[in-house]
């Protein structure tokens, strides 16, 4: 089957009947019979829920998508729904970026608007932010999104510990290579809830900021 595009850890293959099949990109070359067959786009929700070890995946863009399945889809609507369930709102975010209308929110603003038990996150120091973002968001083991937000309004880089490619939507966060034109990069326009929760743990001294 011919590759059509990549999105995160997923590869879309063109099937002979004009439809498309999604797989984990590591499974692209495996014989179909070795993979658990699925044909309902709604199955993507369950496939995205747990990693290979059976742990809950609260962050859908973490590089821990489970292996060993294939999802056959026969139309644009099914493909759209499946990708929405695998990588929620990421196709839409990419579309808004391409239209030149993506707003990003600096980390300091995201932390400053928290209420209740997350209000303390505003106390994160710049050094802690640098170490934490470098650990938590890194593509290798953390998250596959390209970061578009800055640390503050002055435009400070979110973490000096991340390579320049982490901020480049043209870069494949899995391999470090350049994405092809039809590939869809996963972008991060604002710090996610999981990073905010981790900030809280760091501010409260429950976890170190860096490694």
């Amino acid at each position: 089957m011919k590759e059509t595009f990549l999105i995160g850890q997923i590869i879309a293959l063109a099937s002979a009947d004009g439809g498309c099949e999604l797989r984990h990109r590591d499974d692209a070359g495996r014989p179909a019979r070795e993979l658990e067959p699925h044909a309902d786009p709604e199955d993507a929700a369950a496939l995205a829920l747990y990693d290979d070890a059976g742990n809950y995946r609260p962050l859908k863009t973490a590089p821990n998508l489970r292996h060993g399945w294939r999802l056959a889809l026969d139309g644009q609507e099914g493909l759209r729904l499946a990708l929405e369930l695998f990588y929620p709102a990421r196709l839409g975010a990419w579309r808004v970026y391409q239209r030149g209308r993506l707003d990003t929110t600096p980390l300091r603003e995201t932390l400053g608007r928290q209420t209740g038990m997350y209000r303390v996150t505003a106390k994160l120091t710049d050094e802690q932010a640098d170490a934490l973002v470098g650990r938590f968001c890194r593509s290798d083991g953390g998250c596959l999104r390209a970061i578009f937000w800055r640390r503050d309004r002055a435009g400070t880089v979110p973490s000096t510990r991340l390579p320049p490619e982490k901020f480049d939507p043209a870069c494949d966060q899995t391999t470090g290579k350049t994405l092809a034109e039809d590939d869809v990069p996963l972008i991060c326009q604002e710090a996610c809830n999981l990073l905010v929760a981790e900030v809280r743990a760091v501010v409260k001294g429950e976890r170190p900021a860096g490694e």
Binding site: A89, L91, R95, V96, E190
Partner: peptide, 16 residues
């Protein structure tokens, strides 16, 4: 509120 897609992702929904 606490999962993806986040409430803050609303500009990316139904925009195609």
């Amino acid at each position: 509120w606490k999962e993806e897609p986040s409430l803050r992702d609303w500009p990316f929904l139904f925009n195609d």
